[in-house]
Design a protein around this nucleic acid. Structure first.
Lengths: 157, 157
DNA sequence: AGCAAAAAAGAATATTATTCTAAAATAATA
DNA sequence: TATTATTTTAGAATAATATTCTTTTTTGCT
């Protein structure tokens, strides 16, 4: 549905949401009105979900990323919804995916240090419907982006 | 360094960067000037790194998240920088972490479908410095947030 | 080619960000 | 505990930007 101009626009806004209509219009060889209308359409359609500030986690005392892999031995609809609801309420869990395979869930957890992660693990361990399978400590982030690729379909080297 | 008001401000801006100075000022029981000044300071200090639009990946044809785990058998500084540089140039890799343990790296890859992921895997397989260990297909996202928690230190249930 | 619908341009208006000056609060020092 | 210096905030004035409106142009269809 979005045409090429929309994809360019999304590309620009994904990198800097503070660009003005004038600046966007220049990049896209247009005037501000069509840019404005296109953005509003993308927002209405839910293609643009939100505008957010990206915060440096280290600088506010949350430098440690840990991936927590959990399994759900008794894989019932009740357990699934109960667990997922719980996860969504935990601010330390930034991302959570239901995975195919035996691990079932991967949680991306943001903590101050490993000591705090052990506290987190104890909370998870208390949950009756899951079993902690493993934890993967991140040494550092090689890349952290929120930009969903729009144009080239697969990376070539 | 950031005080409680700054943390509240970060909380608000992490959820909605389009809030006006007036709206922020109301929430924080202040006038617009101090809000403005505090935001500029947070930007200068790099605590606020960017303002970005969050795009719905499904709606622009990138619904599939896959985690690609790779190992680096010959763990030399040259191999590390070469691999990391390569990863950073690949738009399909949204996030990448250097992990403690035997897996070495986890890549979060965003693709159209599994077919496209196999293309991606072939690219990685061509790289001389790493060996693909495993791939974890995401069935769906339970939670996807960019909000670094600011206040409560650990989740309690 | 001719018509209808959509998209875009350009100007006018409304909102909002930003700056400026002065007042208040806070911290530091004697 | 006064007193001063520094930082923070308030309130008003200005500048920049978003948003709306009307007209023109382009695009798609028959």
């Amino acid at each position: 549905m979005p045409d090429d101009i929309d994809l360019q626009l999304l590309n620009l806004l994904q990198q800097n949401a503070k660009l003005t209509m004038k600046e966007l219009a220049e990049q896209l060889n247009m005037t501000t009105t069509p840019v404005f209308e296109r953005i509003k359409k993308l927002e209405r359609e839910g293609i643009i979900q939100a505008y957010v500030a990206i915060v440096n986690a280290e600088k506010i005392g949350r430098p440690q990323v840990v991936f927590c892999n959990v399994a759900m031995p008794d894989y019932t609809p009740e357990n699934i919804t109960a667990f997922e609801e719980t996860i969504r309420t935990m601010p330390d869990v930034l991302e959570a995916y239901h995975l195919a395979g035996t691990i079932d869930y991967q949680l991306k957890v943001l903590v101050k240090d490993i000591k705090e992660y052990t506290n987190f693990l104890q909370l998870i361990a208390k949950l009756p419907m899951v079993r902690v399978h493993s934890s993967a400590i991140a040494l550092y982030a090689v890349k952290q982006s929120t930009v969903v690729p729009t144009n080239s379909h697969i990376t070539s080297l």
